[in-house]
Design a protein around this nucleic acid. Structure first.
Lengths: 195, 195, 195, 195
DNA sequence: GATGAATGAGGGTTCATTCAT
DNA sequence: GATGAATGAACCCTCATTCAT
């Protein structure tokens, strides 16, 4: 009782008493993804997420079964974001030529090539390895990528492009002299030419 | 101690639990890699490694600065193993045709396609993301792969093959209908044909 | 809320999850006793009780001061049930001989010997130890047991029988070879014979 | 490093660094029993035990699988103490008459009648209810009590006395007017007379 | 050189209770 | 009157690391 009574209006203690926060669940998920990007799954604790989301510790287990479910939902969202973005980029292409360029863009810098995306993907792959029930995440992600590519290429070609996107993205991440845009384009054209 | 001490035969050559063991350091590293494969970095603790290596807990910090150094050395060894194996497989190829088949084998089942290798690679990639000083590991690994490939292909082709190996390995790991050997071979031949 | 709201039949008498419920307080108490029997006081939480009673979480602190008051009321009810049952069983006896048999029945299987009753009694005894204001519960329970016995036996005998009932019930609960009905009857007759 | 460096010898920080504490495990068990008596199992936490034993938190899980194993060991010790004490008291009796008096003493005040013992017994009974693997504790305790009694009485009588001891102890604990020593003695003699 | 008992910060989670609606 | 989202202290336990022997 005492601790809630402000001595005077000036020194009133700042007490976080945020009730009614309708988008709380979504914010927690988004913040979790940020935490994973910043600190890795290893460094992502309930306490850190709660603090980053400006939320009490109890909120996490109020909305989620446990930290694993939280991570799963965060990854689900990540997976959706990436594959939707790929779909959008490819979907905007009207001709086969535009599609080719869109793929190159996707690798080169726009999405897949980004530090953030790759970092999160590595975390996801590693996590899926230990939690096989999440295999559906990269699976449906791959499925959607290929569906988007198949609007412009044959299934076989789509598959090869998809795999190349994956591989070159990772290699460029580590490589001190990443493959140039010109070279990427040459490869994509080569693959596409084989249909 | 008591239970291991022979009561009356003073010089009896009793096998102590922790016997004289010159290769202890190496064994700890090897066991750490096993632990990472089995439980992930997250699930690999000093206690578990010590127990698996049949070594005292103190040994770990006696031989290594800390658990991170231990993991780093384990990954260094992993990196060496994989790239050496790739070098050997490629090195055994006498003709360009044999080299092509060797690459297909490498992807298809022998090494890179294995569950164990991919699992460890994901752990490594994730770890490197948080410990940039280890970037040299995948870098020199890539360097050696390409050097091996360059015995039979141009540098540009070597690079593309290398990236494709990476990507298709990962995709096949997640894919419920992995790319067939025939299809893999077709792609490799396609890439090689562009020289 | 959405899923329970009828889309077009405005006045449809949809059964809400939480319907009008006049005996809610009593039900909560009864359910609490069930929870204690199933999970022990340790395993009985407000959430679990609310869920089992199909009642909102807030109801518990709305109807009760706190969980301790809830437990107290549950135990009060338990105490009443058991002692009333004992009173009824004894009250139905018309002769001293029938009373003897009734006591044997009470121990042997009917009430006191039951797993459920003993489980709850242990919980109660333990709880009373930490909340002395509840000592009146076993006290009035004992008082009523003796009053029922005194319809057929002297106070001194009633007391001894009562204590024996307590002791043999507990021992038979743990004993792998419980005391037989014949033997129980022999003891009761022995005690009764001393008047 | 900084925090360990004393600024001067006078203000050297007091750091509990108790290494080598050979009886630590036993002390933790003993302290746990004290904690259970004082606060009940419900109120006995790892933190409280660690503090009471002047031991670090980690020591508890270093020596015990978890808090349940700790409680089990504490109860095992309790069970041993009580039944040994009963054995000793009875064992000191040379004649049947002395044995009778020993039993009365045991109930009346010495051991079983004590607040402490009954409190712990209630906790034990309640705990066993939820952890059936501990049923052997009260079982072997009963077994030993009867063995001690059978030095002076027939098995049937031993069993009845044992049950009566249990029941009267509990009832006297709750009763505002406990059974007098004289009355207890009368009952014991009555039971013994039936052989 | 080698050990393993000891440490304590930090992990995930549960809980009774509060209170704006 | 009744709700349930929100709180934060406290729970048990794991961990890398230290250090007296």
């Amino acid at each position: 009782m005492d601790e809630n009574t402000p001595k005077d209006t000036i020194n009133a203690p700042v007490r976080r008493k945020r009730r009614y926060d309708p988008s709380r669940r979504e914010r927690i998920i988004a913040v979790t993804l940020e935490a994973i990007e910043l600190y890795g799954i290893t460094g992502t604790s309930t306490r850190k997420v709660a603090e980053m989301a400006d939320v009490s510790l109890g909120s996490l287990t109020y909305y989620f079964e446990g930290i694993n479910q939280l991570i799963e939902e965060a990854f689900t969202q990540l997976s959706l974001s990436i594959s939707n973005e790929f779909r959008d980029v490819l979907g905007a292409a009207k001709t086969r030529e535009e599609a080719l360029i869109a793929v190159v863009d996707f690798i080169d810098q726009k999405i897949w090539g980004s530090h953030s995306t790759l970092t999160l993907s590595f975390e996801l792959y590693t996590f899926v390895t230990r939690h096989p029930q999440l295999k559906s995440l990269p699976q449906s992600w791959m499925k959607q990528s290929r569906a988007a590519l198949e609007q412009h290429f044959t299934p076989a070609t789509a598959r090869v492009i998809d795999a190349f996107v994956e591989g070159i993205g990772i290699h460029n991440y580590f490589d001190r002299e990443p493959m140039t845009r010109t070279e990427i384009e040459r490869v994509i054209r080569l693959i596409a030419s084989a249909e």
